[in-house]
Structures are given as structure tokens and as C-alpha cells.
């Protein structure tokens, strides 16, 4: 017994180091799988409030640019609305039991794009109605998916994250693939699993696909910048230039698919049978 205690005392620094290293590695490796970094993210009271208060100062200087962006977006939406062929449904007539998507607004208080796993923190949380697995977009294109929410803040897994997989397709066709990121450049993401028989052109637009229960169909992502056939010769590897400038995004929209719960239940039923 005495020897054991002596041993521990003699090597206490080394043992402490090993213990702390194991703790750190466990945190890191466990966070690799989805939805595991529950307590360990910047969407909490302390970090959220700190980021929000510093953000209040820094947004002040970009108000002009943000205003211009919002006006541009409004202009585009008006244009679409006035030129719509179908009879436009009046806003008052929208029945809350019949809508498919709810939209929330939010602001980015912490952005990151230089790591392999980038996360973005928003200033809205569960008390504003946000939940896990809602899609986040900007006026230009998609941004990511909510991975955690606290009371007043939420953490978004950016599309610039090696774990991000988003269902995407080539606009006006039905050829689907999944959008990933290879960490090399924050301006381009990679689209995989598009069959090699599909005719492609540089400059084709990529939008979100219909088989996602998170995003509505046809939300813009980017344009094809480059493509080549993979070594296995069966599918394309496509570089997509993103519409969003991930370095300057500020105001975002959060989309809730009201049917998602039902879809998930249905899918899990099929899997269980």
C-alpha cells in the first residue's frame, strides 16, 4: 500500500497529465459523432452573452452594408411576387394548420470558417422557437443546420464542416447528390454521387434537393466551378462555388419544416419493420 502511494506521489504530475489528456481526447473523439457535444459548445449563457455584446458593437459598423443587402433581397422578392403567374394567396388567408415551413430570423454572433469543423453561433435559441435540425439560410443561399440550442442561443453546423452532408441537386433536373466539404477552401464545397451519365456544364446552378426533411426544395447553394469523374469511374466529383460569402454573413433565416416530425416517424417505422 505504502509503495502504491509512493508511486502515485512520485509520478503525480505524469499521472495528472495522462488523466487530463484522456479527458481531452474523449471529449474530442466523442464529439465526432453527431449530437454529442451537448455541454461543450459556444451556445451557452457565458460565451453567448460575451459574443453577443461584442457583436453589438461590431455590427454597428456594418449597418449600411446589411441594409443594402436587405433592400436588394426585398427587391428580388417583390419582383418574384409581382410576376407570379398563379393567383397569389393573400397573407391573411394562410391557415397555420396548412403551412409546410415556418421561418424565423436571427443574427450570427460568432462565425468561423478556417477550421475543418466550423460552427456558427446564433443569437436566437429554444425560447424563440428554434429546435435541433432546423435549416439555416441567408438571402443568397444555404448556411447550415442547427445542431444545439440553449435558451437564448443556438449552434449551427456550417456547410463548411467535414461532418456536413446536405442533399443537393442540379437545378431543373432530378439528379441528386450530397454536398460535402474537403476543408481546403471556404469558397467551394464538393458535390458527390452525381452519376456519370448526367450531362454537366460549368456554371450550372446547384440547389437543395427534395429528399431532405430539413430544407425546402430549390434553395440556392452555388454554381459548378469544376468537375471530374472519380477514379472509380462511376460518379462525378464536382466543385461548387458557393453563393454565400461565408466570411461576411450576418443576418440569417431559420426554417422549420412542420412536417418533419411526421416524416421522421414514418421513416423510423419503415426501418423497424
Amino acid at each position: 500500500m505504502q509503495q502504491i502511494i509512493n508511486f502515485i506521489l512520485k509520478y503525480k504530475n505524469f499521472l495528472l497529465y495522462v488523466l487530463l489528456m484522456i479527458i481531452a481526447l474523449t471529449f474530442t473523439i466523442r464529439a465526432q459523432s453527431y449530437h454529442n457535444s451537448k455541454f461543450f459548445n459556444s451556445a451557452n449563457w457565458l460565451t453567448g452573452n460575451l459574443y453577443e455584446s461584442t457583436n453589438n458593437v461590431s455590427t454597428f459598423f456594418s449597418l449600411g452594408i446589411e441594409n443594402k443587402k436587405l433592400v436588394e433581397e426585398n427587391k428580388r422578392l417583390r419582383y418574384q411576387l409581382f410576376n407570379q403567374k398563379k393567383e397569389v394567396v393573400e397573407v391573411e388567408q394562410l391557415d397555420s394548420t396548412q403551412i409546410d415551413y415556418e421561418v424565423f430570423s436571427g443574427q450570427i454572433i460568432k462565425n468561423s470558417y478556417s477550421l475543418p469543423r466550423n460552427y456558427i453561433t446564433l443569437n436566437k435559441g429554444s425560447s424563440d422557437g428554434l429546435e435541433i435540425d432546423m435549416g439555416v439560410i441567408t438571402a443568397d443561399g444555404i448556411l447550415g443546420i442547427i445542431e444545439h440550442t440553449s435558451k437564448n442561443f443556438s449552434l449551427v453546423q456550417s456547410i463548411l464542416n467535414v461532418r456536413s452532408r446536405i442533399n443537393a441537386k442540379i437545378k431543373n433536373t432530378n439528379h441528386y447528390g450530397s454536398l460535402t466539404w474537403d476543408t481546403k477552401d471556404y469558397r467551394t464545397a464538393q458535390l458527390k454521387d452525381i452519376e456519370r451519365l448526367v450531362p454537366l456544364n460549368i456554371g450550372d446552378t446547384i440547389v437543395t434537393g427534395a429528399s431532405s426533411s430539413i430544407f425546402p426544395e430549390n434553395i440556392p447553394i452555388g454554381v459548378i466551378e469544376n468537375f471530374e469523374i472519380t477514379t472509380s469511374q462511376s460518379s462525378y466529383h464536382i466543385d461548387v462555388r458557393l453563393f454565400n460569402d461565408m466570411t461576411t454573413v450576418k443576418n440569417v433565416y431559420i426554417i422549420k419544416n412542420t412536417n418533419r416530425k411526421e416524416i421522421i416517424e414514418l421513416e423510423s417505422k419503415i426501418r423497424n419493420d
Binding site: F27, S37, T47
Partner: peptide, 9 residues
């Protein structure tokens, strides 16, 4: 780490 969402690296 806590502030920068980098797990515990």
C-alpha cells in the same frame, strides 16, 4: 475550446 467550438483540442 469552449469559446471556439473545437471540442477539446
Amino acid at each position: 475550446d469552449w469559446f471556439s467550438d473545437t471540442m477539446a483540442i
